[in-house]
Design a protein around this nucleic acid. Structure first.
Lengths: 240, 240
DNA sequence: CGAGCTGTTCCGTGTCACGGAACAAACTTT
DNA sequence: AAAGTTTGTTCCGTGACACGGAACAGCTCG
């Protein structure tokens, strides 16, 4: 029952799509009758909304999601530094945390020009294809690194690193410099510089700035990213 | 079963509190056995997390909440304008939508100095005590206005408007000027200017800037708020 | 050592979720 | 216009499974 409910909610894709009853039943593998009853219950609880014969995720879900600690707390603490970074660079800024072998984006701010990136607040991407992911990976312990290097390396673009040896040197480079670089590995035409955020010795998050290749000036961006990450680390250490 | 699950999730307060099993059972009114089994299921699904004997909301909930359309879409479209407004004023900026007789905050950005405000992303406040709320109320139809004026008027501070007549004139003023003002009605020492965001003729959202009383300069703030709201309205009209 | 907490397991009872079948309404198709 | 197809919806008998009281285990008190 609960499982089915979560399955149903999870079938909704990021594109904000709306589904009809029959479609929901097909995608979830539930009987039409069960999907009907379940959807009605979810609507009653506010987790789903229904207009006419189409369903869409409900506002209550947004409210519940906003209560999750280690997300909202982190976001709140990070926001001022993300703002600083945005003002200094005027480029798209990310904040993400690690969850398994993926990065989950907690915040993403940008101006009027929106880059065609696969990143999305609440969305997941492979650690190995993103700047934020590589920064997290480089400071999450050797065990995790080996685990990830052992498995198959996914790719989002033809530039994504799929050779374990190359990835290993990239990670080692990040460990010395404290910065992770990514060039068109997540989206064509976009490069990225990221830095880990520490709470003590372990990286609890990472932030990055993503830049169209045409405006990519590492020498100017790197210090800004580093400054923001260090500032946030300091606040987290003192606040906790 | 579903009802109980939602009840359990909703008992978690915004303060990011963590509860133990017995505490959960008490607050939800469930049997300890039921709470135990339910919590275990929720942990298995990722909606709850457990460390030791304390429970806290899980990351999956954050991810699901981020998928809710009319929240994420609006936020994405609004962000550049909120950034503009923040840069122009360097004060706390809000974006909210109406839900019943309350405002739900969708976004809130600020710099390093954080005002002690009751507003929170995903949080609800009475329409009548906040700038964003009054802007929404003023442009959501006469029926809603009468409904709200008929009911009891809640108050967050001694300055909150509790006299229906006073509130009515405030709303009428907002309708002519296109701006809603709020002075210490949500938090002591903080004033606020808000403007509605239109998608066609009806207000779908409102944005505001909240300022410590000491720095409150309506003449400078008002045009900035108005500009941001109009810009966002234009984008929503063309995008939809 | 026992009293009072935890969280956890066991188990018999009763309920309620389940899905097949039948239904009404709104469409195509013929 | 009638037959066919697909939609969302209701009905209902069956069986699984959620339920909560009771008993258990591990802990910290006095």
């Amino acid at each position: 029952m609960l499982d089915k409910a979560v399955t149903l909610l999870e079938t909704f894709r990021p594109d904000g799509g709306t589904y009809r009853l029959t479609e929901l039943a097909e995608r979830t593998g539930l009987t039409k009758t069960t999907a009907f009853r379940l959807a009605a219950d979810l609507v009653r609880l506010g987790l789903l909304e229904r207009t006419g014969d189409t369903y869409r995720l409900g506002g209550k879900l947004f409210e519940l999601g906003s209560l999750v600690p280690r997300r909202q707390d982190l976001r709140e603490a990070a926001l001022p530094f993300l703002q600083d970074l945005f003002e200094a660079t005027r480029e798209t800024v990310h904040l993400g945390v690690r969850e398994g072998h993926e990065v989950v984006y907690v915040e993403r701010i940008h101006g009027h020009d929106v880059l065609p990136l696969p990143s999305r607040i609440g969305g997941r991407l492979p650690l190995t294809c993103t700047g934020v992911g590589k920064a997290l990976l480089a400071f999450s312990g050797a065990d995790l690194t080996e685990e990830v290097l052992a498995g198959p390396l996914p790719s989002l673009t033809p530039h994504s690193i799929t050779d374990p040896a190359r990835l290993r040197t990239a990670i080692e480079q990040a460990q010395v410099s404290g910065l992770a670089y990514e060039e068109q590995e997540a989206a064509l035409g976009v490069s990225c510089i990221a830095a880990p955020v520490f709470d003590g010795a372990v990286a609890v998050a990472a932030l990055s700035v993503a830049v169209p290749r045409a405006r990519y000036r590492p020498a100017q961006l790197a210090p800004a990213v580093r400054t923001a990450a260090l500032g946030l680390s300091r606040v987290l250490r003192s606040g906790a």
